[in-house]
Design a protein around this nucleic acid. Sequence first.
DNA 1: CCTCAACTATGAGATTTATCATACTTATAA
DNA 2: TTATAAGTATGATAAATCTCATAGTTGAGG
Lengths: 227, 227
Amino acid sequence: MQEIDTQDVINNFIVTSGFNEQFSFDPRQDTKLFHIAANDFIVKAGAPLTYLFYLVKGKAKLYDVLANGKVSLIDFFTPPCFIGEMELIEQRSATAFSMQAITDCWCLALPIRPLQKKLLADPVFLRQICLYFVHKNYRTVKTAGNNAAFPVAQRLASFILLTAHDGLYSEKHVQVAEYLGISYRHLLYVLAQFVKDGYLIKQQHHYKIANSDGLTRLAHDVNESTN
Amino acid sequence: MQEIDTQDVINNFIVTSGFNEQFSFDPRQDTKLFHIAANDFIVKAGAPLTYLFYLVKGKAKLYDVLANGKVSLIDFFTPPCFIGEMELIEQRSATAFSMQAITDCWCLALPIRPLQKKLLADPVFLRQICLYFVHKNYRTVKTAGNNAAFPVAQRLASFILLTAHDGLYSEKHVQVAEYLGISYRHLLYVLAQFVKDGYLIKQQHHYKIANSDGLTRLAHDVNESTN
DNA sequence: CCTCAACTATGAGATTTATCATACTTATAA
DNA sequence: TTATAAGTATGATAAATCTCATAGTTGAGG
C-alpha cells in the first residue's frame, strides 16, 4: 500500500467518483489516495482500522477467517464502494473481515480517528451510507436468488470473469469451492469440463481464458439479473 | 390491520422495544400501534407506503413478486425490526416488497409523509438505521453461508419451526421450494421423509409437528450459526 | 354446472454433486 | 535436511437433486 500525493490525481478521483458528494463538508483536505498492488491487502481482519476507504479503481474481494482458521470468500467489490464503513458505524476499532486487491486498486481514504465523531453526526454521510447499504442489500438478495437459481457452470463462468486478471484465472480452488457452495472435487470436474469445452487452457499454476466470449455468454444470465 | 389506541399499551411497547431510543426526538405523540392478524399484509408491494413500521411482537415474512408474476420468499423477521426503512431511505413512495404476518403481529408506526424530512436529517435515527443494516448484512452473509453449508433437511427443519403456527405447518410448497432453492419435487421427498421419520404428521391441508424436539435438534446447527 | 388455473402428489430416470480414498507437488518451518 | 501442512489432482461410488410425465383436488369465475 503506497500513498500517492499528486494533488491533481487525488482531486480528479474525488470529483469523478463523487466522493465529495458523500459528505456535508468538503473532504478534500483530509483525503489521501492509496495505491494497492494486486494481491495486497487493503484491510486485514483483526488489524486496527485507521482509514475509511472508498474504492475508486480496481477490483477487490472480501474474506472471512472462520473460527476454525479456514478462509471463506464472502463477496467482490467494484468502484465506487466504501470499505470499512461497517466498522465505522459499529465504532469497532478492529476490522472484522479482510479485503484483498484482485487487480491494482486505488482507494481514497479518510482518517477515522479524527473524523469519526464528525462522520457519525453528519446526516449527509449517514444518508449516503444508508443508501449504500440498501443497494448492497438489494444486490445480496438478488445474488442469493441467483445462487439458488443458476447451475454451477454459469456461476463459475461469471466468477472466473470477475476474478480473472490479464486473462489469467488463479484463485485457490479450496476457497472458490467454498464461495460457490460446492465441493472441491466437483469444482475440479467443472473446471476440467471448461478445459474440455475450450473455455480455459490449463497452465502450470493457473488457467488461461481461451474463449472469453463463450464464458461471457455462459455467465450472461447470472450477470444480467445481478445488475 | 387494526389500530389500537390504548395509550398504556402503546407506551409499554415503545419502552420495552426501545423504540424511543431510535430517534433524537420523542416519538411518542406521533406513534400509532397496529395489530395485524396472522396472514394479513403489513405492507403490500406496489402500494404507497404511509408508515414506517417497527415490529414489536409477532413473526412476519418478506416476499418479492418477480417480473414473471411468480412469488418468491425472501426472508423472515422477528422483533424488533423496522419495516419500510429501505423505501424511506430511498425516498421511494411505493413499497418494493410485500411483508405478511405469519402470526398475529403488533407494529408501532410513524407516519412517513410529515416526518420524512425530519427522519432523514436525524443523525440518531440514521445511525440506528445504519446499525440495523449492518446487523442485517452480517446475518445475510451468515445465512448465505448456511444455505451452501447445510443440507436441505436441516434448513427445512429450521424453516418449519420458524413458520409453524400453533404446531401446524402450512406454507405453500411452491414458495418454500423457491425459498430453499430446491425443486418442488425434492421438497416433497424431504417432507415425506420427515413424515416417515416421525417429525411430522400429514393432515389434509397441512402438516402437524409431531416431534418438535427432533426438529429442533435437526435445525440446531443452522440456527446456531445464524445468531 | 363447467372450466380453468393453482396446488398437491407420485414415479422413473437422468444429472449434479458429495464422499472417500489415494497420490503427487510445493512451500514452510523445525 | 526432513517433516509437515497446504494445495492440486483423479477415480470410484453413493447420495442429493432435477426433469419430465402424469393425475387428482380445490377454488374462483363465467
